[in-house]
């Protein structure tokens, strides 16, 4: 069996203690929530922290609260399963419930947290491999090597942000609070993910993702998440499309965000698609044009479990379907 490398486990009871420990050990320490991503990566030798700071006993990070005036607040430790089943989430943020319900397997959804899902390490078929495999390959830019195997001339890593909830959070315009040794800050989801395969997010190594705040659903809100995968469980997305819109009494679109997941190193907002929807009544031609925008915006590479051309072609199909989801009840 593949064994975890040895490490010291330091459980903490408060966000402050966590930040203090992370700050003390610097790059020798990593936080862990559900561990469904981190421990798997440690077994592959991708991370070898000396200290692992366990967040699971921080009770305040398990809270989930919705009220119509302020929206939804999710503690970072809320399990994906609890989010997928929550009545308020199902009613007001259905795309989030869908995305959370489509992650991995039941076991992973009950251990895996929303904070861990947003901080998910980027993925690549050349990278998520054992130490021996990567050695046989000759390593790559992201770790131990000096060449990107996917984009040979790229100076940066192009690994994929394969989080199912990341594009949805951005579509809902979520705010993410980070707590570090010197205090807290709030960043918009659109600024949280860094478009760099080597660093999934802008979180500093001594910061804890404490909470995610979603604004109250606007009037006439509708949203959808569509995921492309080869099997109906286990699989990370090969593509994800999240759409969130708002409408007025006349059924016209007053707000629209279209996000692409699992294509780049961060979720990609397709502004052209949103602009087309704005003011429209979701006519079939409008949806087709918006899907075409998505198709043009997404530039998959050969680093997932399906070919570049297949993922490229599916961009339009998936976008079309997600757009139809939000249009259907209105048309």
């Amino acid at each position: 069996m593949l064994r975890l490398p040895a490490f010291e486990f330091r459980p903490v009871r408060s966000v402050e203690d966590a930040a203090a420990l992370l700050s003390e050990y610097g790059s020798d320490a990593l936080p862990v929530a559900g561990g469904t991503d981190l421990y798997a990566n440690m077994k592959l030798g991708l991370f070898t922290p000396r200290v692992v700071v366990g967040l699971r006993s921080i009770a305040e990070l398990r809270r989930m609260h919705f009220d119509p005036a302020h929206g939804l607040r999710l503690g970072a430790l809320c399990s994906l399963d609890s989010i997928a089943r929550d009545p308020a989430v199902l009613l007001h943020y259905p795309a989030l419930a869908t995305a959370a319900a489509m992650v991995g397997t039941p076991e992973i959804r009950s251990m895996g947290t929303i904070g861990g899902n947003l901080c998910l390490e980027t993925r690549c078929t050349y990278y998520n491999q054992s130490a021996d495999w990567r050695k046989a390959l000759g390593y790559c830019l992201k770790r131990d090597g000096d060449l990107c195997r996917v984009a040979l001339h790229s100076p940066t890593c192009k690994a994929i942000n394969a989080s199912d909830t990341a594009p949805v959070m951005q579509a809902y315009d979520a705010r993410i609070s980070l707590v570090g040794p010197h205090g807290a800050r709030v960043v918009a989801a659109r600024d949280f993910f860094s478009n760099d395969g080597a660093h999934a997010t802008v979180r500093q190594s001594d910061e804890i993702l404490a909470e995610i705040a979603l604004p109250p659903p606007p009037r006439g809100a509708r949203s959808s998440y569509r995921k492309l995968r080869l099997r109906n469980a286990f699989d990370f997305p090969l593509l994800g499309v999240a759409v969130a819109v708002a409408t007025n009494e006349a059924g016209a679109c007053t707000q629209a965000r279209v996000l692409l997941g699992a294509v780049g190193s961060a979720p990609i907002e397709v502004e052209g698609a949103g602009a087309l929807l704005l003011g429209s009544h979701f006519a079939a031609a409008t949806l087709a044009d918006a899907a075409e925008e998505v198709f043009r915006a997404g530039k998959p590479l050969e680093n997932a479990n399906a070919s570049l051309l297949y993922r490229k072609r599916m961009l339009r199909v998936l976008a079309q379907r997600a757009l139809e989801d939000v249009a259907a009840p209105l048309r």
Binding site: T105, T125, N128, L230, R231, N232, A233, F234, D235, N305
Partner: peptide
């Protein structure tokens, strides 16, 4: 990554 069918 080596795909075998799941229950679903």
């Amino acid at each position: 990554d080596y795909k075998t069918p799941t229950m679903l």
